[in-house]
Design a protein around this nucleic acid. Structure first.
Lengths: 233, 233
DNA sequence: CATGCTTTTATGTTCATACATAATAATATG
DNA sequence: CATATTATTATGTATGAACATAAAAGCATG
């Protein structure tokens, strides 16, 4: 018998992956328990646990106490998108980053904005619009409202050289947030900034962040036509 | 002194998170090493390691041997999107799922498809288009090419009741893949299937999967206008 | 037969200890 | 002084043992 000895959790994981990919363990199958695998591989149960846990986090295995571990019947591919500071995103692509503040006003917000931020309709909030450039071409349009009740310091910033994007990240913590991806037709204003035809299909990323129970900011980033967000699965 | 005793890795993690959110440890700061934290919390170093490792995986901490652990200066928000079987996606929203096969043909593919799949331009591939419905309304249009050289069994399937989406997941393993998100204007054909105006902004998800060195399938899923993919960060 | 209690079991976690590894700092050497 | 070598250090990982916990299965009781 060819007993695969595996003393590291990575090698255990590799062997488990091999068996899944080779369909020795098929989708839905119950696999041997940790103790058995540990014995087979000649390593500690802790090591097997580490390997299987990490595969379960990735969605390839499903584990339940007492019930055991099974290969996910329909593995949900998890696509992890890195939402970085836009400047870094541009620079990482080897392009020259540019930034233009388009609008900065402190005023009473549209009701859907104050509702989303959970503040009174009478509150003055900070509205910032900015254009991010890649090699002088429009890259993304950022349309942001900042909860000035929770983040009064934002009112002191002019956001002319440092984007609200970066200033907030450096200065205001958040504990949780929601993000959504969608496609939107370019408005006349969008089209003007992004230098594209009106009604072009734009990739939109909407974010709403919170610091405990206080909203911080709501932002929509519209990317220029053709933009792709990529990742591996 | 109020010494926070924390015997579980979750409680250690919680306290570390609290300190980061409270800016006791600021972005870029070096935090105490594992041994010190273990002493402070009155737990084993293993426990601290587990807590910090998991925060590092989430991008909130940066760790380097010998150099120590620091709070990420500009935490890259990681948005993890679950790419599930479309039927499940619809049913999870509490809607009735419907499926219509629109096209199924085995033929020589356009060059950009055979190039993407890494097969000869003369090879006959399987082309499948299908409409996914949610409460009888168009939900998503799936346009797929299957590498019939690597997956000859696909040619035996008619995909009239089971979507290629689900059949492949059940029957053909893949070891890696690429996924990209973008916005596209609806073609006349798209608009016809999705029952929307031509040139509507559609959210497009493009996937290419591989089984080791063999391509499996390339697929584009176009969602009906207004569709959002959401997640928490 | 349905319902609640008890046992069993597989995963989940903690711990102390030991050693591995990568990266930095200190030192020696030409 | 530049470069190679060595020591130091913080994270990374492996181990066996123990206990915790959730969930299934078995059992008893009405």
């Amino acid at each position: 018998m060819n007993v695969p000895t595996a003393q590291t959790w990575q090698s255990v994981q590799k062997e488990v992956l091999r068996r899944i990919h080779a369909r020795e363990w098929k989708p839905g199958d119950l696999i041997p328990n940790e103790a058995e695998l540990a014995k087979e591989f000649g390593c500690a149960r802790t090591t097997v646990n580490r390997a299987l846990r990490s595969l379960a986090e990735g969605g390839l295995l499903e584990r339940r106490r007492k019930a055991g571990t099974r290969v996910a019947a329909q593995p949900v591919a998890k696509a992890t998108l890195n939402i970085a500071v836009i400047r870094h995103e541009v620079e990482d692509r080897g392009a020259r980053y540019g930034y233009q503040l388009a609008l900065r006003e402190a005023r009473i917000a549209p009701t859907h904005i104050s509702a989303a931020l959970g503040v009174g309709v009478q509150e003055r909030l900070l509205h910032v619009m900015a254009l991010h450039l890649s090699n002088d071409a429009p890259y993304a349009l950022e349309d942001r409202w900042i909860n000035a009740v929770h983040v009064p310091d934002a009112l002191k910033q002019d956001f002319r050289s440092v984007s609200a994007n970066e200033w907030l990240l450096q200065n205001v913590p958040y504990t949780r947030g929601e993000i959504s991806f969608s496609a939107k037709p370019a408005s006349a204003e969008n089209a003007n900034y992004l230098n594209c035809p009106e009604k072009s299909a734009l990739l939109a990323v909407d974010r709403l962040t919170w610091d405990h129970d206080q909203s911080v900011t709501v932002v929509q980033v519209l990317f220029a036509p053709g933009h792709q967000m990529r990742t591996r699965i």
